[in-house]
Design a protein around this nucleic acid. Structure first.
Lengths: 332, 332
DNA sequence: CTGAAAGCGCTTACAG
DNA sequence: CTGAAAGCGCTTACAG
């Protein structure tokens, strides 16, 4: 910066002003300074800048699973909203590793980002409390915070489960099964509640069986599908809800393509996320859609609200409603 | 930091030493300092730190399309390799927007990251040259740089096309079609060359038709599929290569599920990326696999090499070989 | 082993 | 409108 100042025959204060407060500088001087900047290839040092100002123009977003299109959607929405308010969005993927998650929270904390968006897979109260205690703002996505600890954007996951089960019941299915795993993951737990509520509401004509899967991914779904395929025909459910799309698709594959148990004729299947792959599967998947983009946008809005209002900020929770997307695996 | 020093009854220099060079501090003092740090919730200011040291512990990665599992794989590989050398990986998604890409390149440049990994969709020489001229190291992924301008990690995309076509020819298909779009995207162009080479090599018994699609996504594939389905049976190719998996899956869907033209019996189909969705489609997709994780790892390796060797660094290009994954859409 | 001091590259009142 | 100076929070030789 001193070099630029020398080259333009001004002081560093003036160079700083043309960069930050152009109105304070005469046009002629500004022009000379700009010319010097580009001639010398000067790049403002962000570290020094944020050291003085105490803040940055970046929002950090920590995602538990960048493979999952829901998380990608949240990142997209957040990115759009962040840019609209002049913030850059920096992404970090923890791959469900809590140590990594803590590292990234600390990294963003140390680098004094404007704030942090966190979409975790496990309770993260400790990490949140840690960086909040340093004054770093955090908004939680898709995971309810301890009451009053921070802002959050949630989907009504109970309603996700409810919509899925209700659709099956409304289309005449009476023997429902709910395939679930990873019950310590809050959204999963909530969906179960909704499934149960819909079944109870339907009365004694509808039964619910809960099938525990070892995990939430394709390979786990294949196992569940194989088990189901080995059952006596009378033991088969006629409507199945899988807590993730990936699970649903794998089960459909085993049932429909491998074992010849027609979907949806014999078993109708509903997924719970409406991931990118939902429409592309063997039998296009009926699924309850999670509004990822909107979640990301809302999260940025809450974060900027909090940053702007300072001490008088009140934490808020935004709960978005899911929507059923009907496809072939469980038609109308 | 001064607060910590006061609380522990030492100077700030000593506090800095327990953080950075614990060996230089007596155990008792160090303990007192650590206690003060945690009691006061002190967080080291990264900006000040990097202002002094002139560098950071973060690598920035700019991705053109976070929706594409190839890019996600590259991020994963890079993340693993980065952590192994004590670097954090910061991700930025440009959603194929070159303005955004330039913004993020500049952001990482200004924040003095250790280096930048860039996986673009278009020629990015200008941006690369700009930040390289400031001494910022860049490694290009999946896009060949102007010769001698930076390190890069590529896949032999010509061989991708070759493997796809060759597999169809080897399994007895003689009327090949290659569905392509976005020919200004280097990997796409390279794949075409490979397809042509395999067909020429096969001699006059094998023909190749090139079908121009408007774009690379599902909706474009549906259009191509519909057009094909309307053809007279004799006009149909018996082997089809789509330049992306997404295109391939959409075409299969139209042909097989909608129009009743059996895949692979009537038309065998091969995709060119082996994306996450490849195995989950109506007819599981035979595809040429791009080694995304390895690409990310190699990119970090090249970057750290360059950082370590300074002026005497020679740019290198790592070319990884693709591999054919045979599934039902084009069996052995 | 510990402390005092310089300096990293900026921004921001404050004079002029 | 412009310049000189202080200070942001650290790290790093250098004395002691």
């Amino acid at each position: 910066m001193q070099d630029v100042a020398d080259a333009a025959g001004v002081s560093v204060g003036t160079v700083s002003n043309v960069l930050n407060h152009p109105a304070k500088v005469s046009p002629a001087t500004a022009e000379r300074v700009r010319e010097a900047i580009s001639r010398l290839g000067f790049v403002r040092n962000d570290a020094a800048r944020s050291l003085v100002s105490g803040s940055t123009n970046s929002v950090g977003m920590v995602l538990a699973d960048i493979e999952n299109s829901l998380f990608i959607d949240m990142a997209h929405g957040a990115q759009d909203a962040a840019r609209a308010v002049g913030q850059n969005l920096l992404l970090a993927n923890t791959a469900c590793d809590m140590t990594l998650q803590d590292d990234y929270l600390d990294l963003f904390d140390e680098s004094r980002v404007t704030g942090v968006l966190l979409a975790p897979m496990e309770d993260s109260s400790a990490g949140i409390a840690r960086i909040r205690s340093h004054g770093r703002q955090v908004v939680l996505l898709n995971y309810a915070p301890r009451p009053g600890t921070c802002c959050s954007v949630l989907v009504n996951n109970e309603h996700v489960g409810y919509l899925a089960a209700r659709h099956l019941i409304d289309t005449g299915r009476t023997r429902l099964a709910y395939v679930v795993a990873h019950d310590d993951y809050q959204p999963v737990r909530d969906r179960r509640r909704g499934v149960r509520a819909a079944v109870e509401e339907a009365g004694p004509g509808v039964t619910l069986e809960e099938i525990d899967s070892v995990g939430l991914t394709s390979s786990h779904g294949h196992v569940v599908g194989q088990d189901l395929a080995r059952r006596a025909p009378d033991d088969l459910p006629d409507g199945l809800i899988a807590v993730t799309d990936e699970l649903a698709n794998a089960i459909i594959h085993q049932l429909h393509a491998v074992a010849g148990i027609r979907v949806p004729d014999r078993v109708a299947v509903v997924g719970c996320e409406n991931n990118r792959a939902a429409g592309a599967s063997v039998v296009p998947l009926t699924a309850v859609d999670m509004p990822g983009r909107t979640m990301g946008q809302e999260a940025i809005r809450l974060l900027m609200d909090e940053v702007a209002s300072g001490a008088q900020h009140r934490h808020a929770t935004v709960v978005l409603e899911p929507e059923l997307i009907v496809r072939a695996s469980a038609p109308r």
